[in-house]
Simulated scan of single mutants.
Amino acid sequence: MISRRVFLMAGTALAAAFALRGLTPLAWAAGMEPFEVVKSDAEWRAALTDDQYRILRHEDTERPFTSALNHEKRKGTFQCAGCALPLYSSEANYDSGTGWPSFWQSLPNAVATWEDNSLLMTRTECHCRRCGGHLGHIFDDGPPPTGKRHCINGLALAFVLSR
Rank of each mutant, 00 (worst) to 15 (best):
S106M: 09
W100G: 01
L120H: 15
S102A: 14
W100E: 03
N117L: 14
Y94T: 12
G99W: 00
P108M: 10
C126G: 03
S89I: 00
A84Q: 15
D95P: 07
G99P: 03
T122F: 07
L120M: 14
L107C: 10
N93K: 15
Y88K: 07
A110M: 03
Y94P: 08
F103A: 00
A112H: 14
S118N: 03
A84C: 10
G99H: 07
S118P: 02
P101Q: 04
S96I: 10
D116I: 01
G99N: 12
D116C: 01
N109L: 08
P101N: 06
T113N: 06
G82W: 00
Y88L: 09
D95F: 00
M121D: 02
E115V: 12
E125K: 04
P101I: 09
W104P: 02
S89W: 00
S89P: 03
V111Y: 00
S118A: 09
S90Y: 06
S106I: 11
S118V: 10
W100D: 03
A110Y: 01
S118D: 04
G97P: 04
E125S: 05
P108F: 07
Q105L: 08
S90M: 11
P101S: 05
W114N: 12
A110G: 07
Q105R: 15
L87F: 04
A81T: 11
G97T: 11
A81K: 11
L120E: 15
T124V: 14
T113M: 10
E115D: 06
T124Y: 02
N109V: 08
M121R: 05
W100Y: 07
A92P: 00
W100M: 11
N93C: 11
A112W: 13
C83W: 11
R123P: 00
G97V: 11
S96A: 15
E91R: 10
